[in-house]
């Protein structure tokens, strides 16, 4: 168990480092650098800098250094909570991201909870009642869920909402709460707005998880240990829920770890379509405007969020599967 924990923790740290390097690479990728952009901005305002001033600025920001040194400088300031300045907004990046990051998390967690709440019972039902009408129906719905890219699903839902109910679904708050300070009422308003994005984001994952659960459970249903549980006189419903479902839960939970980055990814596009105040629209805008410190910070924070989510689902797996806990003990 300890070795598993250490290994997972190590992987999480390596992943975070990899993500931070990639995020910094994104900041560095576009031709030119921060100063070139800055000079261009100043020029647009009518000021120009002398070559000496430019050189001094470059030194100040360490832009004359190698990639590694620059990266280490950046990471050091990030660790102090300083993500740099947004060129476009002329405000500190951390200020811009603030609430949006938490809302992104809320949307992702809502989507994951929904995925679980739907996939688990449907997967179990489909496996136990294989080839029933409902099983076929779920299979078909699942296939469509897999096939419709979630931005299209969001578009379709918005279209139907607009066409048949005349309402503009989207956003995470009612107009009255958009700029209101946090209060219980505002949280409740948020909760009321979460299901729609959760459905849009969760559909593909739910379809996939139903397939996984169904396949795993079908593998387990005919194992001898299920027969022995029946043979000792246990009620059929409890036989299924206590034994094969419990075993089939392991692959189900381990896939959850990969579901998290997938959903965070998807939330970017869905937020754009549904107009959610998450980091998604901010990232797109930053990328299109080549506001690279902002973009890099968002990619980094999303990555770190994902690593934490993945780590937590690994811990869940540890809790659920005694075989991992026993590793290296027996």
């Amino acid at each position: 168990m300890v070795s598993y924990l250490v290994r997972r923790l190590f992987m999480a740290i390596v992943t975070m480092v990899a993500i931070s390097v990639l995020s910094f690479a994104i900041i560095q990728l576009p031709p030119g650098d921060y100063i070139t952009t800055y000079i261009a901005q100043l020029a647009a305002d009518g000021t120009s800098l002398s070559d000496a001033e430019v050189l001094a600025l470059r030194e100040q920001y360490g832009l004359d250094q190698s990639f590694l040194v620059q990266y280490l400088r950046w990471i050091a300031s990030v660790l102090h909570g300083d993500f740099g300045m947004s060129m476009e907004w002329r405000r500190p990046v951390s200020e811009l991201i603030g609430e949006r990051l938490w809302l992104t998390m809320a949307v992702a967690v809502a989507a994951i909870l929904l995925t679980w709440a739907l996939a688990l019972p449907i997967g179990i039902y489909s496996a136990v009642r294989r080839y029933s009408v409902a099983d076929y129906a779920f299979t078909i719905v699942g296939f469509i869920g897999l096939a419709v890219p979630n931005f299209l699903l969001a578009l379709a839902l918005m279209y139907f909402g607009y066409k048949f109910f005349g309402i503009n679904i989207g956003g995470l708050f009612s107009p009255a709460y958009v700029d209101a300070p946090w209060s219980l009422a505002r949280v409740w308003d948020l909760i009321k707005h979460l299901p729609l994005p959760a459905i849009v984001l969760g559909t593909a994952g739910t379809a996939e998880m139903i397939r996984v659960m169904r396949a795993n459970l079908l593998d387990e249903l005919h194992r001898p240990y299920v027969k022995t549980a029946r043979a000792r006189g246990l009620d059929e419903r409890r036989v299924i829920l206590k034994y094969p479902v419990r075993v089939a839960l392991n692959p189900f939970v381990s896939i959850l770890a990969y579901l998290f980055p997938y959903i965070v990814s998807g939330s970017i596009i869905v937020s754009l379509v549904l107009g959610l105040p998450t980091v998604g629209p901010l990232l797109l805008r930053a990328l299109l405007a080549q506001d690279m410190f902002l973009a890099g910070a968002i990619v980094l924070l999303l990555g770190i969020m994902t690593v934490i989510g993945t780590f937590l689902s690994d811990m869940l797996l540890l809790w659920i599967d005694p075989r991992i806990r026993l590793e290296g003990r027996s």
Binding site: P224, Y225, K227, T228, A231, K242, V247, I320, D321
Partner: peptide, 15 residues
């Protein structure tokens, strides 16, 4: 009562 051939697979791996 019933006893099966394969004691490993006849017992739940997670209980």
């Amino acid at each position: 009562g019933l006893v099966f051939q394969e004691p490993m697979s006849s017992l739940s791996p997670v209980h």
